[in-house]
């Protein structure tokens, strides 16, 4: 193959493909949450009853935000370890990230329980419908991230680690984090 023409990524490795793929996927996810969040904002501007949000537990949610952000940090560390070839570090940090995700879900479940026992069910009004749909869809994404990270962590124990997969999982995990950074002020604070 001595063609003078420029070479393209005809043999692009799995890592490069995975990265391009995940970016396109995240682009569509942005539109999914974007659609939901804009619907919420428009409905709110449209003046539907949205006063109930003082029944939310802002303190608990703030703690939860902190936990999720920390798990983004441990995810970064996991990838750094994977890059270094530090298997143990990677396992540890992936494990921590999984724990962070689980803690977030646990606290979220606690919040839901509190709200529902006070009668703020998903059908209790437009605000609550949006609240449960948005945070629920986000929680589902956290759950998927937890499963992905746990799989990578276990895979690493079996010696099946692929550092680039940690990077891909990391991209996804940061995205899930960023979504929360939009949701938190929008739902709890405004």
């Amino acid at each position: 193959m001595s063609a003078a023409t420029p070479t393209y990524a005809g043999t692009a490795g799995a890592a490069a493909r995975g990265k391009v793929g995940i970016w396109w996927f995240l682009a569509s996810e942005v539109m999914l949450f974007g659609g939901l969040i804009s619907s919420f904002v428009i409905s709110r501007l449209g003046g539907s009853a949205h006063v109930e949000h003082d029944h939310l537990n802002v303190t608990v949610a703030a703690i939860n935000t902190f936990i999720l952000l920390s798990s983004s940090y441990t995810m970064v560390e996991a990838y750094a370890a994977a890059e270094r070839g530090d298997r143990r570090g990677m396992r540890v940090f992936l494990g921590l990230t999984v724990l962070g995700g689980l803690a977030f879900l646990g606290i979220k479940a606690y919040e839901y329980t509190g709200e529902i026992t006070h009668g703020f069910t998903p059908w209790a009004g437009t605000f609550w419908s949006f609240y449960y749909t948005m945070t629920g869809l986000h929680a589902l994404h956290v759950l998927i991230g937890v499963i992905a990270n746990a799989t990578l962590c276990l895979g690493a124990r079996l010696g099946l680690e692929r550092p680039y997969r940690v990077e891909l999982a990391g991209l996804y995990w940061h995205f899930v984090d960023i979504v929360w950074i939009f949701l938190f002020p929008l739902v709890y604070l405004s």
Binding site: V30, G34, G35, S39, P122, S129, L137
Partner: peptide
């Protein structure tokens, strides 16, 4: 994406009893 969001909301209206699109429940 936005239509997936819409489909989720419509499913919730039908199954859970939310009112995203039902005016009598404050929806649009």
């Amino acid at each position: 994406g936005p239509l997936i969001a819409g489909a989720i909301m419509l499913l919730m209206d039908r199954i859970v009893g939310t009112g995203f699109f039902l005016p009598e429940r404050g929806g649009e």
